[in-house]
Design a protein around this nucleic acid. Structure first.
Lengths: 213, 213
DNA sequence: TCGTTATCGGTATTCAAGTAGCGATATGAA
DNA sequence: TTCATATCGCTACTTGAATACCGATAACGA
C-alpha cells in the first residue's frame, strides 16, 4: 500500500528507521546493492527477525539469499517517514541547546532544512548561528506564514513555550518538536513531539542503581 | 520493598518519573502537601489511572481523598531513579551539543554534576564552558579513575565514540549516555543509553505525513 | 452523627510489540 | 543438473504495558 494512512507502522519501528537509514547509507557507500536483514541486524546489535519485520513494513519485497534492494529500500523508508521531499522548519529559541541544534548535521540527512531562527532576546537578533540568521520573535508569525513552514523546533524556556506554540500554530505550523518541559496544549490536528533529555538519564541511572543494589 | 532489584519498574514508568518530579516540585512550591493522581494527571495530560499506577510503584501509600504525601513521594521517586544522592559525571566532546549539555539546567535538578569535560581538540583545552574547564582527552583516563566517576556523557563524533567508550570503561565508568550514532559495544555490566535526536523527528514527520496523506 | 464521594489499590481484560517456529524460494556450489 | 542453504515472509505464541472495572476507605458536608 502506498498510502501511509492504510499503513499504521508500529511506533518502535518508526523509531528504528532512522538508525536503519544510517546503516543502509553506509553499506551503500561501501558498494552494497542489497541489504539483508541478518547483516543489518548484526551491524546494529538487533534481533534479525525483528529487523526483517521492520524492513518488510516498508513494503519493498526482498529476495532469498540476497536481501532487499538497497536503493529501493532506502527510498521506501524515507517515504514512510515523510523524508522523501525536502521539508522546511523554523527553530525558536537560540539558547545553547537551540544553537547546538542549528549545527546538528543529522537534520540535513533527513531532508530537513532550518530556514529561519528566532529569539526573544533582541540583542541576539541579527547574529548568525551556524549559517542561520537569528531574527526577533516579533517577525516570526509573519515569516512562518509567508514561507509556509509547517514544522517548528521549540527550544525556548519552559515559561515561554506555550505562548510560542500558539503563535506558531496560528501561523500555520502543523508539527512541533518540543524541547522544553512544558506540557503544550494545541488544537486538534497539530502534533507535538516532546523531547526530554532527563528521560534517557533516568533510564540509565535507574539501571545503574539497580545493578549496584 | 526497598531494594530496587526486587522492584522491576516498567520502563515507561521510569521515563515518566522525571516529568512527575518536575510537576510535583512545582506543586510543592505552590504549597501543596499532598499530590493526588487525578490532579497530577490533569496537569500533565495523562490518564489518571496510569498516573496512579506509576505513583503506586514508588511504594509510598496514598490516602483516600487526599493523595500521596508530596515530600515522601518525591523522595521515593528520586530514590527509585538513583537521584537521591549526588552523582558525578564527565562529559566527553565539547562540540556544540556537548557545550549545550554543559549548560543544561535539568542535570542539576537530578543531582547530577558534571565534574569534568574533555575534548580531543587541544586548542579547546583550557577554555571554560558554562563553568566547566575543558581538558585534553589524554587526561581523561587518569582523572576519571582518580575522581571515581561512574557515569559519562558522550558527545563526540560517531567515528571517535567507540574508542572513547573503551577508555572510559577501562577507567571505571559504568554507564554511558551516548549521543553519537555509533553502536557502542561494551563489556557486560556497563550500560549504554543511546540518545538519538533523529528518532523524535522521525515520529513527528511520520505523523504529519500520515495526516496529510 | 451519618451519608456522600473523591481517591486509592487491587484484579481482569485488551492491545501492541517482541519472540519463536516453519515452510517457501532463489542462489550458489557440487 | 542437482543439492544444500541463506534468507524471506507468514503464522502462532509470549510478554509487557495500557485500559477498564470495582471494592475499600478516609475526608468532608449536611
Amino acid at each position: 500500500m502506498e498510502n501511509p494512512r492504510e499503513n499504521p507502522l508500529p511506533l518502535p519501528t518508526i523509531r528504528r528507521y532512522p538508525i536503519f537509514l544510517r546503516a543502509i547509507g553506509e553499506m551503500m557507500d561501501a558498494g552494497e546493492a542489497f541489504i539483508s536483514s541478518s547483516v543489518l541486524a548484526e551491524r546494529l546489535g538487533l534481533d534479525p527477525v525483528l529487523t526483517r519485520k521492520d524492513l518488510a513494513m516498508a513494503g519493498v519485497p526482498g529476495r532469498p539469499r540476497r536481501g532487499y534492494p538497497a536503493e529501493e529500500l532506502r527510498a521506501a523508508i524515507n517515504r514512510a517517514l515523510g523524508w522523501d521531499s525536502a521539508t522546511d522548519a523554523v527553530l525558536v529559541g537560540t539558547g545553547s541547546l537551540g544553537s547546538a541544534l542549528l549545527g546538528y548535521a543529522g537534520f540535513k540527512e533527513q531532508n530537513l532544512s532550518i530556514v529561519a531562527a528566532f529569539d526573544a532576546n533582541p540583542r541576539l537578533a541579527g547574529s548568525t548561528v551556524h549559517g542561520v540568521k537569528v531574527r526577533p520573535l516579533a517577525e516570526m508569525a509573519r515569516l512562518v506564514r509567508r514561507l509556509k513552514v509547517h514544522l517548528a523546533i521549540l527550544t525556548v524556556p519552559t515559561a515561554a513555550a506555550q505562548a510560542c506554540a500558539e503563535t506558531l500554530v496560528e501561523a500555520g505550523v502543523r508539527g512541533i518538536l518540543n524541547f522544553s518541559s512544558a506540557q503544550l496544549s494545541v488544537p486538534e490536528g497539530v502534533i507535538v513531539q516532546n523531547v526530554d533529555l532527563a528521560q534517557p538519564l533516568a533510564v540509565l541511572s535507574h539501571a545503574i542503581a539497580r545493578m549496584e543494589s
